[in-house]
Each structure stands twice: as C-alpha cells, then as structure tokens.
C-alpha cells in the first residue's frame, strides 16, 4: 500500500514490530545476535585479510603453539589455524544457513498444504513424512555421500532433506489450528482463492514458532555437518570446516591441544549464541506475552 498516508492517520504497531521491540530488550539475545554477526563478518572477511592462505603449508614450522605471528598457532603442516577456522566457519555457517533454508522452503509449503487441505491430501503428505522420519537418516546421508561422492552441494541438499520433516509437522499443526479461526472463514466467505488464503492469511500467522525452530535447526545442521566431516565423509582437506578441524584436532589432542580447543570454541560459542537467540525469539514472538 504505497499511497501517501494522510498526516492525521496514526500508525499502528504490527505484531512483528511488537516482537522486535521485545527482542531488543532481551540483552542476552541481542548480545548473541551481535556475536553471530561479528562471527559471520569475520568468517567472510577474515580469510581475505589474513596474510596466510588456508592451504598454505609451512612444513618447517610444523605445529606451533599460539604466538604473535600465528595468533592461534598452526597445525601439523604449519597452516595458520586462525585462517583455517575462519575459512571453516564460512563452510559451517553456509551449511547451516543453506540447509536450513532448503528445509524451511520444503517444510513450510508441505506442512501448509497438508494442514490446509486436510482429508486425503493431508493423510498422504503426512504419511510420506512419517515414512521418511522412520528412515535412519544418518545412514541416508552417509549413503548419499558414498554413492555420489563428497560434494558440498550434495551435503547442503542432504542435510536440508533431513531437517524439513519437523518443519512440515510444525507448520501443519499451526495451519490446522488457524484454519479453525473465524478470520479464515471470513476470508472464505469473501470468496478469496485458496492460494490467497493460504499465503496471505495462514502462513504469516503460522511463522512465529517456525522462526524459533529455524534458529534451533541451524545449530543442529551445523552439528550434523561437523559430525559427517568428523567421520570423514564431509569436507576434506585442504578445505576445512569446524567439524573437520575438530576431527583433526582430536587426533593430536595430547601433543597440540590448541588444534582442538580453538575450533571447538568457535563451534560452541556459535551454537550457544544461536540457541540464546532462538530463546529470545521464542519469548518475543509468544502470542500470549504479546497480549499483556
């Protein structure tokens, strides 16, 4: 609605603005968001600014402890650990975001259609979800990796394909509950098309819990990636991700502890921040809290 607004009209506060206002007052969530932003910027810019390449070896140096030259030390091949962590962060964060995005797109559409249409369509769609749930998904991912080779894109897809199931279930429940609401009946009696009702009236009202779940899915996807890389199926050297760095670090834990500590720290701090942000979002978007 782009027409110039009459000066006498009072602007309302939407529920989103209200939630945003509440989120900003949650110190922990704001700090977490800032930290995530800093982390993301560092991962994007860091490898460019660093004087070392992520695959640049210095075999003479070998594994050196943190120093003024290599802030977080180097690994067994003399590669700068800070650079490798930041480079690995790119991949880990990207996996988290893209896989979650894939999951979100499939899950929202699938769940919304199932919840809104109901009846036989709902039964079929949700049985498919049940069946996929029942598959041991780690084996599914591992099989994909083994059969199609270690491919970054495939990894995104595989992780997203696993995570959308819960999103679909949440979305279906939300939409089902909302469909009983009178404003949906009102939309029906206005003669609006199913598509408009679904995407204008239902989905925006169902997004709250899903946003919260998204912030909790990103860490779980990142953990999965770390796990897959840890067992040697994901990211392969000389590329790095936090998971693969941790895997490397574990092997030499006793001689060169910094190789485990720093990647581990980067991963844990990010996961903590995401969880705190998720908690903050949940409180901010809670409808009951919004009414007080």
């Amino acid at each position: 609605m782009t027409e110039p607004v009459d000066a006498t009209q009072e602007q309302g506060t939407s529920l989103w603005q209200d939630a945003w206002w509440r989120l900003r007052r949650n110190t922990l969530a704001v700090l977490s968001a800032c930290l995530l932003l800093v982390m993301a910027l560092a991962c994007i810019a860091g490898p460019w600014l660093s004087p070392y390449g992520y695959e640049e070896q210095n075999l003479l140096l070998g594994a050196a402890p943190p120093s003024a030259v290599h802030w977080l030390g180097t690994d067994g091949f003399g590669r700068d650990l800070l650079t490798r962590i930041l480079y690995g962060g790119r991949i880990s964060l990207m996996v988290g975001l893209i896989a979650t995005g894939v999951a979100l797109c499939i899950g929202v559409t699938w769940g919304a259609v199932a919840g809104y249409c109901g009846g036989r369509i709902d039964a079929v769609l949700m049985r498919i979800v049940d069946i996929l749930y029942a598959l041991p998904f780690m084996i599914f991912v591992v099989l994909l990796m083994v059969v199609f080779g270690r491919n970054l894109l495939l990894l995104f897809f595989a992780l997203g394909a696993v995570e959308w199931l819960t999103m679909a279930r949440i979305m279906r429940g939300q939409v089902q509950a909302l469909t009983q609401q009178e404003f949906v009946e009102a939309a029906l009696s206005l003669g609006l098309s199913q598509r408009v009702i679904l995407f204008r009236h239902l989905v925006p009202n169902a997004l709250g819990p899903l946003i919260v779940y998204t912030t909790l899915t990103i860490p779980s996807v990142m953990l999965l990636e770390a796990f897959i890389s840890f067992i040697g199926l994901g990211i392969q050297p000389p590329q790095s991700s936090w998971g693969s760095l941790i895997a490397d670090g574990v092997e030499t834990m006793e001689e060169y502890p910094w190789l485990l500590i720093y990647p581990g720290l980067a991963l844990s701090v990010t996961l903590f921040a995401l969880n705190f942000l998720g908690d903050g979002l949940r409180d901010a978007l809670d409808v009951r809290a919004a009414k007080d």
Binding site: G12, S14, E182, F183, A186, S189, L190, P204, N205
Partner: peptide, 20 residues
Amino acid sequence: RRRMQMIFQDPYASLNPRMT
C-alpha cells in the same frame, strides 16, 4: 460471495492479526 456475507461472533478471532 459478493452478495452474501457473514459477521462472526468473536471479534478477536475473526480479524487477521497481522493485517492493518
């Protein structure tokens, strides 16, 4: 639909909370 409309009981549930 244009010619017949409905008014609902609960004014809290019958309006989309995210639309002005």
